[in-house]
Each structure stands twice: as structure tokens, then as C-alpha cells.
Nucleic acid binder design. Structure first.
Lengths: 247, 247
DNA sequence: GCGTTGGCTTGATCCATGTCAACCGGAACT
DNA sequence: AGTTCCGGTTGACATGGATCAAGCCAACGC
């Protein structure tokens, strides 16, 4: 019961702040749909929380896998590196999203997860998550949905990379970000990009110059206002239209 | 016990032929790592088997999801269609692989699954799979690995679409097929493509003409021999080298 | 206040792949 | 055997985005 815990003790305060049951992301994150009692059992499992500074790795490709991670706050990218130096950003993750699902398959992480701003994560030991989800049907089912959602998201990216032109890709990217910010209670129309043009380009299969030119074009057309990393969306429908018409 | 079953009754024969415990794909498929007793419990769950004729849909985007499917024999593609007519092949699946994982997320299928040759599938009711995997730890863990493997595979495709040029993509594609045929006991060096140039192109984010030209180029270089859908790989290392050098 | 640095923008040019079009060859049907 | 059709190949040309290069701007350190 939060009300019975002495709030003047800092360590206790921290406990309150970081429990799933008290986390304002719980509807976006793993706890979705759990009862209060179930939530408390999930709390027990998440013992480790960590701060990751901007630029630091949460994990690296090749490291042994034993936990998945929920982002409490902050912003990450994941990328894959090939021996020949090529790399590809495979995703950008924000608060409430899970990282590390790729590691389950081989028991080793297959990509790098890097914080794009100072972030906080909850480590969820995977074997304990599996055993708890054998007991809590809701947790099991929701976890399966989260994994499946990741597969669907990846299909969307494949679609984007396989069939869209540069401007369509960037429009899709901005609309996706906007929608995810909205789901977290932020403005849908105004936000700061946490990633560089080069990272956007890598994710979208474009060069940074192309990304930059597309931003400028969108600005000329009056769809958005860009100032470095600060984006204001002025005409959502314009961006949507750009994506839906086969040129 | 198979030996006690009267083999002269056709219906019984069918039962033997299609049980997981007697399936020669079990090491590639869901039953991987299960004990004999566990296997029999999995058998109980897989009540529905279906033949899908070449060209027919196993499921369509938008349909309600209730089962995942294991391919017993045959060959499938999955694709996503956009309103504006664009479509993207998101994968090719062969015997022992699972289809339908994308549907868990929203309880509706998000892509189409189409047989590229006459095929046979086992339908696995998903809610029963979940309840069984709450009881059989091995099954649960293996299922998680399979989903995770799909995510890793998708990252590989994103890498391919985002960073590789046409010939690298096709080389990667051929090597991947070769390796999967090998895992199923077929020749690694000689096989028939089940899909058209257009379908390969869609998967690889290329136009069919580009695919065709790349095939011809590989043939000129002596890496492969192509005759329509019949492929012989003459120089695996040549293909591998093509992928690894940043041109 | 000034130089340095990293990220961003913009322009000029090039090239890989798309587009359009003709043709080929095997399979299925008449 | 001839016709049709579908998938594949090949050629000529167009173009979107890559590449190369210069310059700009904001943040930061000295």
C-alpha cells in the first residue's frame, strides 16, 4: 500500500517510483491487462533497474542473453552490424517498449541497443518471466502479443524499405513517431528528434543527404517546420496523402 | 505404439502419417526438444490438417486469427497489401516452418499466406497451444525461440533491403534458400525455385527485370546455372564473396 | 571572443535500378 | 500443329537517390 510507506526515506521512495504497479507506462508495457495481484507478482520479478547514459550500450550483439528490458524513460536505437562495416538501424524504441526480444532465439543478443538520451530501464530476467507467465495466463498472452506486434512492425518496415520512395519513407516515419508520442501523452504535432539524420537514413535505407533534402522539401510544401531536431507537423493529411498515392 | 496399430485400415494409417511424434520434420518444427510423452500431448492438440492447393490462400489479411500453422509439406509465401495497390512479399516458408505468428498481436491476420505449390499444413489452435505451453516448459521456451527467430530473420531482411545492392540481395537470397534446403536434407547446390521472378523481386525490393538480369550476371560469372526455375549453385564462395565485400 | 567540432543543408554530378518495350520459349488448350 | 498465355530475358533509355564537395550553424572549450 503506497500510503503506508514512509515517503521521507529516499530508498523507499525509489521503490515506489519504480514498481510496475505504480508505473504510468503500465498500460503500454508488459503489465497491460494484469490484475493488481498479478501486477505485484510481476513487480517481484523486476529487481534490476539501470540508468543508461546517452551514447552508452544497454547490450551489444554477441553478448549472452538473459533478460529483456522495458524502457522506463528515454529513447534507444537498435542496430545490426555486418563484418564489412555496413550497419542498419533496425528500430527506435521509446518509454514503455521492450528491448532484447531478438536474444531469445539464440540466447545471445543479435543487435546493439544504444541510448539516444539518458534513459532508465527495467531488466526482466527472462527465465523468471517464462515461469511467471506459466502461472499468469494474462501475462503469457500479453507477452505473446508483444512479440507478435514486433513481427508485424518489422513487416511494416520491410514494406517501407521494399516499396516506398524516399519521401514516402520519411513521411511514414514522422507519422509513426507522432502517433507513438501521442500514445504517451505528448504532442502529436511537435517533438524533438532524438536521432541524427544519419540514423534516420540508416533506418529508412537512405543516405543522410536524402533525409535532409526530404525534410527541406516537406518544409517548402508547408507540411512541417523543421529546425534541426525540432519538428512541428503542420499538415498531417498532407503527409498521409504523400504516402497513399502511388506516384 | 505404432506397431500395434492395424496398418491395413486407411484411416489409421493417416493418423500415423500425420502425428507430430511420427513427423520427420519434428526437429525443425514446434516439437523440437520435447520428450516422447510431451510429444503425444502436442499430438492431441493438432486435430486439423489441411491440404492447400497451389495458388490458394491458407489465410488472408483481416481474417480472425485462431490458429498458427505448421507446414508439413509444400511451400508458401506471405505478403502484405497496401490500399494503394502496392504489395510486398514478407517471406517464403517451407516445410517445418510456422505461419501465422503475425496474427497473435491483433487477433487478426495481418498478411496473406498463399501456397506456391500443393501443400499440407497442421493447424495449431493458439489458445490450446498457450495452455499446453503453460504446462510444458520446453514447449513454451521453444515457441518463444521460434517467435524470436522470426524477429531476427526480419532484421536480416531489413538489413538486406536497407544496405545491399541488387546482386548482393539476390546472392543472400540464394544462399539462404540453399541453407534451408540443406537443413531439410535436400541438395544445397541444386533446387527448383517455387516462386516467380516477380515474387523474388517483391521480397528483395527489386523489379523482376533486375532479378532476371542479376541471375544472368551470376550465370555469366559462373556462380550458378539458371534455367528458368531450376538453379544449380556452382560456386558458393563466389556468392558469399559478393555479399561480404563492400563494393 | 574565437576556433573547433559535429550535425545539417545544399549543389553538381553519377550510376544503379526502374521503366518501357520487344521478343522468346514452354505449357496448356483447341 | 497452331494459338494463347504466362513467365522470363534482354535492350534502350529515364530517373531517384547516391556520391562528392562545399559551406552553414549551434554548442562547446579555451
Amino acid at each position: 500500500m503506497p500510503s503506508t510507506i514512509p515517503l521521507n526515506q529516499e530508498i523507499t521512495l525509489t521503490v515506489i517510483k519504480t514498481a510496475c504497479s505504480n508505473c504510468n507506462l503500465r498500460e503500454l508495457c508488459l503489465p497491460f491487462g494484469l490484475s493488481l495481484e498479478e501486477l505485484e507478482r510481476l513487480d517481484d520479478l523486476i529487481s534490476t533497474r539501470r540508468r543508461i547514459k546517452r551514447g552508452d550500450h544497454l547490450y551489444r550483439a554477441g553478448e549472452a542473453f538473459d533478460s529483456i528490458y522495458a524502457i522506463r524513460s528515454g529513447f534507444f536505437k537498435t542496430d545490426v552490424l555486418l563484418e564489412d562495416g555496413r550497419d542498419q538501424v533496425t528500430g527506435f524504441q521509446m518509454a514503455g517498449e521492450l528491448l532484447g526480444l531478438d536474444g531469445i532465439s539464440t540466447e545471445h543478443h543479435t543487435c546493439n541497443a544504444i541510448a539516444l538520451e539518458d534513459s532508465e530501464i527495467c531488466a526482466i530476467p527472462f527465465n523468471r518471466l517464462e515461469s511467471l507467465s506459466r502461472e499468469i495466463h494474462n501475462l503469457q498472452h500479453h507477452f505473446h502479443k508483444v512479440m507478435s506486434r514486433e513481427i508485424v512492425r518489422d513487416h511494416g518496415v520491410m514494406m517501407l524499405l521494399g516499396t516506398m520512395r524516399a519521401e514516402e519513407r520519411l513521411a511514414a516515419f514522422l507519422l509513426n513517431l507522432s502517433q507513438r508520442f501521442t500514445a504517451r501523452g505528448f504532442s502529436h504535432a511537435e517533438f524533438y528528434l532524438r536521432m541524427t539524420r544519419e540514423e534516420i537514413g540508416s533506418y529508412l535505407g537512405l543516405k543522410l543527404e536524402t533525409v535532409s533534402r526530404a525534410f527541406s522539401k516537406f518544409q517548402e510544401e508547408g507540411y512541417i517546420a523543421v529546425q534541426q531536431k525540432h519538428i512541428r507537423i503542420l499538415n498531417v493529411n498532407g503527409l498521409k496523402a504523400l504516402m497513399n498515392h502511388r506516384a
